[in-house]
C-alpha cells in the first residue's frame, strides 16, 4: 500500500518529467506533428490539475518531508523559468502560486 509520501514522490517525479517533455516540445518547434502537440497539451492539462489538486495542497498543508519540500520548491522555480515557453506552446499555465 503506497503511503502519502510515496504518492508525493511519484507526483514530483511525474511533474518534473512532464516539464522535461514540454521543454523538448518547445525546442522542437514545428517538427512535431500537430497530433503529438495536441496529445501533450491534454496530458499537460492533467499535470497542471495534479499540481493544483494534489501537490500544492500537500505542500501548503505541511504534508511533505523536508526533502520533498525542497524538490517542490525546485519544481516551482523550473515552472516559473519555463512560463514563456509554456505560453508560447499555448499550454495551460500553472494555477498555483509559483512563489514557495
Amino acid at each position: 500500500m503506497a503511503t502519502t509520501q510515496d504518492l508525493i514522490d511519484f507526483e514530483l517525479d511525474i511533474l518534473n518529467r512532464a516539464l522535461d517533455g514540454v521543454l523538448d516540445l518547445a525546442e522542437a518547434g514545428d517538427e512535431e506533428p500537430d497530433t503529438v502537440r495536441y496529445h501533450e497539451m491534454l496530458v499537460w492539462n492533467s499535470d497542471m490539475s495534479r499540481l493544483k489538486l494534489d501537490l500544492d495542497p500537500a505542500y501548503r498543508r505541511g504534508q511533505m518531508t523536508l526533502e520533498q519540500q525542497e524538490r517542490y520548491r525546485v519544481l516551482l522555480a523550473r515552472l516559473k523559468d519555463a512560463l514563456p515557453l509554456i505560453e508560447r506552446l499555448g499550454f495551460a499555465k500553472p494555477q498555483v502560486s509559483l512563489e514557495p
Binding site: H39, L42, V43, D54
Partner: peptide
C-alpha cells in the same frame, strides 16, 4: 490521437 486517464 490520445488514450489516457485525465486527472480532471
Amino acid at each position: 490521437t490520445t488514450v489516457f486517464q485525465p486527472r480532471d
